[in-house]
Every structure is written in structure tokens, then in C-alpha cells.
Design a protein around this nucleic acid. Sequence first.
DNA 1: TCACTATATAATCATATGCTTATATGTATG
DNA 2: CATACATATAAGCATATGATTATATAGTGA
Lengths: 102, 102
Amino acid sequence: MEECYKALGDKTRLRILALLRTEELCVCELTDILDMSQPAISQHLRKLKTAKLVKEQRKGQWMFYSLDGSLYPFLEANLLALPDLGQEIEKLKASGRKVCCD
Amino acid sequence: MEECYKALGDKTRLRILALLRTEELCVCELTDILDMSQPAISQHLRKLKTAKLVKEQRKGQWMFYSLDGSLYPFLEANLLALPDLGQEIEKLKASGRKVCCD
DNA sequence: TCACTATATAATCATATGCTTATATGTATG
DNA sequence: CATACATATAAGCATATGATTATATAGTGA
């Protein structure tokens, strides 16, 4: 449980979770939206994955991450309390940088 | 919100919160139960207070701390999810080291 | 297979965190 | 007022954390 809160205790990771509230995203999209280096994003995602807050799924060359609320049910309310950053994803789509692979 | 989760992301602070679930306690009681130095406990309590997770109230020479769930209502569920450490407080009472000041 | 893109990992470094010791502040009581 | 007890704060130090750069791994497609 400590590890879980540690994972939540970082602004970048909270932003990632807030973004994943809207829809699953791959690493390069998160890198793009959050304007951070790819390794930095990867390392944050690893922490979130270790804490069982997100799950990953490969789609071709992209690795998509999405919320995983299975570990502690009460955490669901915490995730819902995060601000809606759907607008950031809209901007990404508008700029034509959204990955499509379905 | 980041600060709040940071405060939750430490084993000692989670234990303090779990203990305060049962009843308010003063610094020396927490020091006793958690078997840590007084300054260490004080510093953890300050972080919890800054994060608005606990509130303090002076009673004579003792400073009592109790849960403060007012900042983020959804956090209440998190606090309730902490294990019940009432037994530790019982042990303290049984050993005659519980502070009485009412 | 080779080049390209996406992602993960490793090494390094600056900063943050948590504990310790020492000291200051605050309150009760003789 | 002086002493004792409770708590807070400051300084110092070892470890943890988060970023960067460089490199390794993995999938795509010519």
C-alpha cells in the first residue's frame, strides 16, 4: 500500500493517470503531451505498473498503457478525483500526432 | 494533491494514520508505540499536518493529533482501508503508559 | 537482412527524504 | 522562579528519487 501511494506522490505520474482516465495512450503520446524525455516517461510508467496502477498492452510497435484499478478498489475514487485532461488528448489528435493502430 | 499522496507514501506515516483511526494520540504515545525517536515522529506529524491529513490540539503539556478528512472527501475511504491497529493502543493502556488528561 | 521507429534499461548526477543528535520552545508544578 | 516533562526545530548525513545521456531491445517494412 505504501508503494501505491508513493507511486501517486509525483506530479508527472498523477498527470499520466489523469490522461489515462480518458483513454489508453502509448509512451510516445505521453512523451508528446507531457513534453518530457522518453526515458523519463518510461521510468514513471514502470513505477505505476509495479504499483499495479496501470497495465500495458502491446499493439504492434507501440506499448499502450491504461488504468488498472484492480488492486485496491477504494483507489478508484482517487483516480476519478483527478482532473479531466481529455482536452490535452484532443489537442494531440487535432495536431495529427495521435497514434492509430486498431 | 501530490503533497497529500506524498504524505501517504511512507510506512511510518501510514501506521500513524492507522493508529489515529482508533483514537487521537499524543506524540509521546506514538513514539512509544512505534518505537521511534521523538523528533522522527514530530517530523512525520508535521508532514501529515501540512498535507491536512491530521489536525492537532493541545491538551495541557501534550499535543494530541487526530485524523482530518476534510481536505479531500474521497480520501476517507483510503483511511478506512488502513488496518485496525487498535490492539497496539490496548497494549499501551495495559502497560499503563497511556496519557490521561481529560 | 537492413534501416527506422518505439520502448526499455543502465549509468550518472543533483535534489529530496528520513533519521540522528543537539538545542530551543512551551507548559506544569514545586 | 526553577526544574522537569513534552514537543518542535535545526544541522548533518546516508539513502532514495527523478532527470539526463547513452545504449540495448523489439517490432515494421523495404
